[in-house]
Design a protein around this nucleic acid. Structure first.
Length: 769
DNA sequence: GGGCTAACTTAGGAGCCGATAT
DNA sequence: ATATCGGCTCCTAAGTTAGCCC
């Protein structure tokens, strides 16, 4: 990794996973421990520039921590309090979960807006209008269009065709450049129309929602119909010959206990099952499923032997692999059938793909990092747990025979089709549409438009936060320094998290003193800040950057009289920060900076790295390098693939082989040339040409392999997918492809092309983020 | 304004599956 | 024909943000 990746700041981001991380985590374990013992002492903060309004805030922020003012005795008190709080929470959650078990149907929500707007969905299509289907988006302007009759039936025809006369959509958030895009498109579209029906066949499948108007009333749809979720297959008891042993003796388990045991048995090869917390949580929850007799006997997980069960599952999966073609085909067909039946819904006249139509099967919770709840039992979700969301006037999904839904509601202010409450954290899980859907695509597009608006005012914001570094008020200085980190390092906002409920990870606002180190001088550089913390998914962020003197001085000030486990920004949280950002620019939040900086970095890097004369593989390497710069900025890491070394070796072998091929081919060319010199006839001339071509071809192949090797090596611990999918304005990539004649397939695979269909359709080579 | 939490985006890893090597 | 590999899809955890209630 060379300096190519910088964004003009010299920074060394050597975040790492793997063994390093483990060491790191251990370190964190210790710290976590200390963290619990040692609580924040509000009294400590004698901040120089404090004034009255600060106090209010910090008081609240450290509400539970302040009880510890007087170190010793109060620490216990605090812990007690904490425990109580936990208990309270537990209770609340249990209540919540309990209530989700009961199928007391809540009274149907009578949302005015539902009735108000749903008819639009069922607007029948005026045939006489030559293929012009009124867009559901027109509703807001055309209430008069529907009459009562239409209220009660569903769309007669699901639209799979895009509006041929679709009006150009007016996106308030767009700027003028878009205008031209659309004009251009219209031309091509008209051309297509004249091309006749043959060409239309494929075209028909694609609905260009981005050429339609959006809803402006906050509703997400007018009509929604679906078949409900697919439930996890029921538990199949083990055959009698597969035994579980306790203390060396075989023991037949009751159904529920056996099922939970199989969850553990299936994971025996996984590192999880060696972790204490995992084992403890698993055993506790497992015992809840046991009969009272089993509970008496099974008291020690260490005496449990699941290996026969584990073996059985291995054989099963082996057998599955060995199945005949026909059997495999049958399964495939069954999956396809399920997908066709449950994998799609009808939203506003269009058939749309659902993202996750299968309910999560029961199993053991796999929290990431040092998650305090890992190993807990994720219970089986039943129809009685599910809330269905659909149009009132749609064909409601049927619960499996003999069951009921928890509730059926008709809320078109949300995008989900079904939801349930999960039992580990008590949070809600949703069934939503695929990224290729209109509803997700619009949001995605909008996200990039917001980032582009930030581009227009980022200079202003930057000079403002630089000014704020000098503020008299502590809270403003903290806000300004945090914003600087978010902007320059693409840190996440960093919400506060419940201690003990999740892994101890942080983002910008939740950084603690222990996460940064200040070096007035380091090597050649002055004012270096070293970051070392665990971020989302417990991925380590490690970075050293030189900062402006003023930032450095501020940080020193923030650190004064604090303990390692105190908050760095004690006068700041995400809510304060985002409220501030909202005032600076409409729609601005902390994460917009990540999107903006990612996208602008890609654009800059592409400009810098692409050599016009290079061939396509080399250009793609440049693209990947630009992408990599972003992934590094956003700290998107992956565990080096298990087979990394081997696969590199394989590639190297291929390169060696190609190289010897090349020298052989060169020799042949030389010989042919000599031959031609001697004979000077057409035949020998041709032979030279043939050989020359061969050399050229092999050279190209070799080059391609070498590029591939470089790319893979550089990508060892970097994951490009996340930034590609979530942070990079796809129009930048599309424009780049068009500019250099690179097929879009080289950059985006099929799924990605589906997700970014809007961008592929609308961006031309001049697009500027 | 804080606490709570619903709704939605972002995230890495597991495991499947089809292409390619043997 | 079978084994291996690498990309892709699926899965679901873990974030962010807005909005409600008090």
């Amino acid at each position: 990794m060379s300096g190519v990746y910088g964004r003009g700041h010299s920074q060394v981001n050597c975040g790492s996973k793997g063994s390093d991380t483990h060491k790191h985590k251990d370190k964190y374990k210790d710290k976590e421990h200390r963290h619990k013992e040692h609580k924040k002492d509000k009294e400590r903060e004698k901040i120089k520039h404090s004034n009255s309004e600060h106090k209010d805030h910090s008081e609240k922020k450290h509400k539970d921590k302040e009880k510890l003012k007087h170190s010793n005795g109060s620490s216990d008190k605090h812990r007690e309090r904490h425990k109580e709080k936990d208990k309270d929470k537990e209770k609340r959650r249990e209540e919540k979960i309990q209530s989700s078990y009961l199928d007391k149907p809540k009274k149907e929500k009578e949302n005015g807006y539902v009735r108000d707007t749903s008819p639009a969905a069922i607007k029948s299509e005026p045939e006489e209008d030559n293929g012009f289907y009124p867009s559901p988006h027109h509703i807001k302007t055309s209430k008069r269009e529907y009459d009562d009759e239409e209220f009660e039936h569903k769309p007669k025809k699901v639209k799979v065709e895009h509006d041929k006369k679709a009006k150009k959509r007016k996106h308030e958030y767009e700027d003028d450049e878009e205008e031209e895009d659309v004009k251009h498109k219209k031309k091509t579209k008209d051309k297509k129309l004249t091309e006749g029906k043959k060409a239309k066949k494929e075209e028909e499948e694609k609905w260009k929602w981005w050429e339609e108007e959006r809803y402006t009333d906050g509703s997400k749809w007018r009509f929604l119909e679906h078949k409900g979720p697919v439930f996890a297959p029921p538990y199949e008891p083990l055959p009698d010959n597969v035994k579980f042993y306790y203390n060396g003796k075989p023991m037949k388990l009751s159904g529920p206990a056996e099922e939970v045991a199989t969850f553990f048995a299936k994971m025996l090869d996984h590192e999880y099952t060696t972790k204490d917390i995992f084992r403890k949580n698993f055993f506790k929850d497992w015992r809840k499923e046991m009969t009272s007799e089993e509970k008496c006997v099974l008291t020690d997980l260490n005496k449990c032997n699941f290996s026969e069960m584990n073996e059985y599952f291995k054989i099963q999966s082996e057998a599955k692999k060995q199945m005949s073609k026909e059997e495999k085909l049958k399964i495939k067909e069954e999956n396809e059938r399920l997908l066709q039946e449950y994998g799609f819904c009808i939203m506003d006249n269009h058939k749309e793909r659902i993202g996750n139509f299968r309910i999560e099967p029961p199993g053991l919770f796999r929290g990431r990092g040092d998650h305090p709840k890992m190993g807990m039992l994720k219970r089986r979700i039943r129809p009685e747990d599910i809330i269905i969301n659909c149009s009132k006037d749609s064909k409601h999904p049927k619960p499996p025979p003999g069951t009921k839904w928890k509730e059926v509601r008709h809320d078109n202010k949300v995008t989900w089709l079904a939801s349930w409450t999960e039992n580990i954290q008590g949070s809600i899980k949703y069934i939503m549409l695929n990224p290729s859907s209109r509803i997700k695509g619009e949001k995605d597009w909008q996200k990039y438009e917001t980032a582009r608006r930030l581009k227009k005012c980022v200079d202003r914001l930057r000079s403002q936060y630089r000014d704020d570094w000098k503020s008299k008020e502590m809270r403003i200085r903290q806000r300004a320094v945090a914003l600087y980190f978010i902007d320059r390092l693409a840190l996440r906002a960093g919400n506060e998290k419940e201690e003990g409920e999740t892994a101890d990870t942080v983002g910008c606002c939740s950084l603690r003193v222990e996460h940064i180190k200040l070096y007035p001088k380091m090597d050649e550089q002055e004012y270096v800040v070293e970051f070392d913390f665990l971020g989302k998914d417990s991925i380590r962020y490690y970075n050293k950057i030189p900062v402006e003197k003023r930032v450095f001085k501020n940080l020193q000030l923030f650190l004064e009289n604090k303990q390692p486990e105190d908050d760095l920004f004690d006068r700041l949280n995400t809510s304060i920060l985002n409220k501030h950002l909202q005032e600076l620019m409409d729609g601005l939040t902390a994460k917009v900076f990540r999107t903006y900086n990612a996208s602008i970095t890609l654009q800059q890097q592409l400009k810098e790295l692409t050599c016009p004369d290079e061939n396509i593989p080399a250009k793609i390497l440049s693209y990947n390098r630009a992408n990599r710069a972003v992934a590094i900025l956003c700290n998107h890491q992956r565990a080096p693939p298990k087979t990394f070394e081997k696969s590199m070796q394989n590639l190297q072998n291929k390169i060696d082989e190609k190289q010897s091929q090349l020298s052989a081919a060169r020799k042949q060319l030389k010989a042919a040339k000599a031959d031609h010199k001697a004979s000077h006839n057409d035949k020998s001339k041709k032979a030279v040409e043939v050989k020359r071509k061969a050399v050229q071809r092999i050279e190209e192949q070799l080059m391609k392999l070498q590029v591939q090797a470089t790319d893979r090596e550089e990508n060892k611990q970097i994951a490009l997918g996340t930034s590609k999918l979530n942070y990079l304005d796809p129009r930048i990539s599309v424009a780049w492809c068009k500019k250099w004649g690179i097929p879009i397939e080289k950059i985006y695979n099929k799924t990605q092309r589906e997700k970014f269909a809007w961008a592929i359709d609308m961006a031309d080579e001049d697009y500027e983020f």
